[in-house]
């Protein structure tokens, strides 16, 4: 009789269970009504089954978002885990939609499900990609905008994983500042 190694039939469990959300901008509905949970997963294999099944971000219509959050955290500022949090924001030029967008988003997903930020991965709530005509955005959301150590570690690792050149500055902004901003830019808490 042949002995089959467990490697070949046991899925690889992730540290966390994750939920993928989709937002489609329909102006006749409320913001919350436009937000839909697609699916949850907690293994490497199920992550790929979902990722391979859905549209690439670059194929989505303008106004759409994907969000990947830890199970139990909703992809909105109001969630208890996000209220005092913020985000590392990557803003992309229009040219980058073709060159970088899908690659950056997949790398972001792999950072999350692979727990790339070591012990500081506990501070991660999720990530969001916004498809917008004026320029796409990708962000990693963390739970506490005052946790400088976690935020700077996450920012350094993330920037390196994306291959963003050292001379390019990325900013971390609190959701409270983003929600109450008056102009089009939010002040950075960290860079």
């Amino acid at each position: 009789q042949k002995v089959v190694s467990p490697e070949s039939y046991i899925k690889h469990p992730l540290q966390n269970k994750w939920a993928l959300w989709f937002f489609k901008n329909d102006k006749s509905k409320t913001w919350q009504a436009n937000l839909r949970l697609i699916s949850k997963f907690d293994t490497v294999e199920d992550f790929w089954a979902l990722y391979n099944h859905i549209q690439l971000s670059s194929n989505l219509m303008s106004g759409c978002d994907y969000s990947l959050f830890k199970d139990g955290i909703e992809p909105m500022w109001e969630d208890e885990q996000n209220r005092r949090g913020g985000r590392w924001l990557i803003t992309l030029s229009k040219q980058q939609r073709k060159a970088d967008l899908d690659r950056f988003w997949l790398e972001t997903l792999l950072c999350l499900v692979g727990e790339a930020f070591d012990d500081h991965s506990d501070d991660v709530c999720g990530a969001v990609i916004n498809i917008r005509a004026k320029g796409d955005k990708i962000a990693i959301w963390t739970t506490d905008y005052e946790n400088k150590e976690a935020i700077t570690h996450i920012g350094r690792v993330y920037k390196e994983r994306l291959g963003v050149p050292p001379k390019v500055i990325i900013g971390y902004q609190s959701h409270a500042d983003t929600a109450t901003k008056s102009g089009s830019t939010t002040k950075n808490k960290f860079v």
Binding site: H12, L14, F47, W48, Y51, V113, G114, A116
Partner: peptide, 20 residues
């Protein structure tokens, strides 16, 4: 400890036949 997976390990599973 944490269940950490690096990018190459994760990418290695993208086109594996599905588990049943």
């Amino acid at each position: 400890g944490k269940r950490q997976y690096d990018r190459d390990f994760l990418l290695g599973f993208q086109f594996m036949p599905a588990c049943v």
